[in-house]
Structure formats: structure tokens, C-alpha cells
Computed example of a mutant assay.
Amino acid sequence: MENVLVVGAGMAGLQTVLGLRELGYAGRVALLGAERHRPYDRPPLSKDVLSGKTDDTTFDADWAALDVELLLGRPATGLRLRDRAEGGFVDTDAGPVEFDRLVIATGSRAINLPAAGDVHGVHVLRTIDDARALRTALVPGAHVVIVGAGWIGAEVATAATAAGCHTTVVEALSAPLAGALPAEIGARFTPWYAEAGVELLLGARVDRIEPGAVHLADGARLPADAIVVGIGVRPDTAWLAGSGVHLDGRGAVVVDGRLRTSAPGVYAVGDCTVFESARYATRLHVEHWDNALQAPRALAAHLLGEDAAYDPVPYFWSEQFGRMVQYVGHHPAGDDVVMRHGPEGTWTAGWFAGDALVALLTVARPRDLAQGRRLVQTGAAVDKAKFADAGVPMKSTVR
């Protein structure tokens, strides 16, 4: 392994480089990124950048010590593998880049509505440039319409309302986060919008977008100085078409428990992957910061000779309308849900497979998350009656 090329200069790409160097790899490493910026942190984009607390979320890295060749502002356009041997070339608009081992870490791209990308005043939020452009539109008195009441939609609504904007959120489903959580759990988020002064329209489908307005399928017209589309992301893997690297139906790179793709010498980490989980006996697609932090370290160890599988318990968080929301675990549809109600609107939802606690969602209950995370990781059997009693410490609910 003389020449490692990492494609994708985000969290997962940088952590791959850091992992290789920290574990003693002294060979050539190149980091290829589509954006002109050095690797930066994405979670603060919808919080600190939109609120104006900061304009720069660049990671603090010692680039001289890392001795990495930075190839920024050069999107990957194709992949050519060598016949009957490891290695190949990643094509870019500035010419091909050769590699012996390749790590794909290109993350995700924001989905936009059909034809909306050509309409003035329409924003998505995925990059630092997206956040800076949107921030200029969040001015007091502006009418902001957000399409999608998912994680990003709620965080942008939080920032827009704090900036003094008249904010409307349009959601096609019956509850916020209904695509990610059961509707009865998502419904618990609904009152937060009204409390914050945000108009939430549920079961509202967008018919079309024009400059200055969003038209709904029921004929309503919503005036808008700024329109934000927050309907999700897709793996940024179009450049792999025809390469021989196996992608699933959503375009995610299919990897095994060692983060190996179907092509020899080619690996993948982060949002762009669907990985094999022995823990959950399925493949997982995890689009969150913690996965982009942890998976590259496991991959670096594997590249340098260790044979440990990557099989995490997923974790993510969101800040919505002044509340910290945290989730840990993985729950298939049909698992039992038990609620745990705390004071002042705080609560925890637990998903159970039999008596085993398999997932946990907490709202402003950090101690529940800290103690419950250990129970989820170990698959502990939990007394559901004690779980439902918020006065019982989570660690004391074990049978």
C-alpha cells in the first residue's frame, strides 16, 4: 500500500487521513474534495452559521504534520479500476488521480424539488456556502417557507424564527419526522412549532415553486422571500456509475463489515455507504456525524492489518426550538414503544424487542441518554414498568 487516495474532504475523509497517520502509516496520502474549502464541520451549519455565531467551521488540523496532498475544488467525475489488479484512477475535471488503495468518502448531496434549483430564492442546506447564502436571507420580517419538517427543516425553522422571520413549514406527511420516526412519536414534536411561532402545515403537498411563492396542491399560495427545501439527502455517488463498485437502489456504496466495497482495494465510509451489521442482522445506512467520525478510524486500522469489524450502535442528535433531541440504537418497524415522561415537557421513548431495550429517543433528558445508551449497547433486559417511571434512574431499570 504505497498510495492511498481519499475522495471526499469532509468529516469522514479527514478522519480517514488522521486515522492512517495516527496508526503509523507513512506512505503517500492524497485528499480529493469537490469543494474549495478545507474539511469543515457540518452540524454547526444549521445552528451557529445560520444564527451568525460563526462564519467558519473548519476543523483544526495540523496539515504539515499530516503530510497529505490536498486536491481541493476538484470534483470526482469517474472511477477507472485496473484489470486483475488493485488500484486505478479517479477522473476529475483537472485530470486523473492515480491510487493503489481508494477510500470513498463523498458523503451525501441535498435533494431539491424538481425544477426548483433554477428558481431564484430557493435554498438547500448541505455546504458552508449554502449556509452563508441562506443566512443572508434570514432577516427580520422576511417570509421564509421551509419544505419538509424533518431534522434539517426543524433546525432551519429554529434559526429563522430566532432571526425574526415569519416562518412556515410545509410537510406532506401527517407529522414532523414521520419519515424517520413512528407518526405517534413525530406528533409529539408538533406543538413545538406553534410554541415558537412557526406555522406548521401537515399533509400539505407542494405543487410547484415560483420566484416569491410556494404553491400547494390544494391551491394555496404561500408568499416567500426565501424558500428552503429540506426533504432529505442522497449519497453523492453518481461519479461511480459504470465503475464496477456495487451501489444499492438509493445509490449508497455497499460495503461489508470491514468497509470493503465489491472492488478490490476500494473502501468506503460515512454517509455514502450502506454497511453490513452483524449486531442488527441487516445492512444499515447511517447519515449522521457519529458514523463519519467512527467508521474511518475502524477502516484505518483495517488497512493497517487489524481485522476488526465495524458494527456500531447508531447515535445522532438534533437541536430544535431550544430542545436537545438525541437518539441511540436501531429499531425495526413493529418494536414496542414505551414512553417515559419527565417534568416540563421532557420525555424519553424506548423501543423494545421483547424485554431488550434496542433504541432510545430522549428530549432534554441527557442522563436518560447517557445511562440508556449503555443498556442499548449491551442489549440489556429492562423492566418496562420501571422504564416508564421517570423517577427511576435508567440504570436501575435493568431486570
Results as ranks from 00 to 15, higher is better:
residue 210 E to T: 14
residue 211 P to Q: 09
residue 211 P to Y: 07
residue 220 A to K: 12
residue 220 A to P: 02
residue 221 R to A: 15
residue 221 R to L: 08
residue 222 L to Q: 02
residue 223 P to T: 11
residue 223 P to S: 12
residue 224 A to K: 02
residue 227 I to E: 05
residue 229 V to D: 03
residue 230 G to T: 13
residue 230 G to K: 06
residue 232 G to E: 05
residue 233 V to N: 10
residue 242 G to A: 07
residue 243 S to I: 10
residue 243 S to P: 06
residue 244 G to H: 07
residue 244 G to C: 09
residue 245 V to G: 06
residue 247 L to C: 11
residue 249 G to P: 00
residue 249 G to Y: 00
residue 249 G to M: 04
residue 254 V to M: 13
residue 260 R to P: 05
residue 260 R to S: 12
residue 261 T to K: 08
residue 263 A to D: 09
residue 267 Y to C: 10
residue 268 A to Y: 01
residue 268 A to H: 03
residue 268 A to S: 13
residue 269 V to C: 06
residue 270 G to A: 03
residue 270 G to E: 02
residue 271 D to S: 08
residue 271 D to H: 03
residue 272 C to K: 08
residue 274 V to A: 15
residue 276 E to N: 10
residue 278 A to I: 01
residue 278 A to M: 02
residue 281 A to M: 07
residue 286 V to N: 11
residue 287 E to P: 06
residue 288 H to A: 08
residue 290 D to V: 12
residue 291 N to I: 01
residue 298 A to P: 01
residue 299 L to C: 10
residue 300 A to I: 03
residue 301 A to N: 06
residue 304 L to A: 10
residue 306 E to R: 15
residue 311 D to H: 04
residue 319 E to R: 13
residue 320 Q to R: 03
residue 324 M to N: 14
residue 327 Y to K: 01
residue 329 G to Y: 05
residue 329 G to N: 07
residue 331 H to E: 11
residue 333 A to D: 15
residue 333 A to Y: 00
residue 333 A to S: 12
residue 333 A to N: 07
residue 334 G to C: 08
residue 337 V to C: 08
residue 339 M to Y: 11
residue 340 R to C: 02
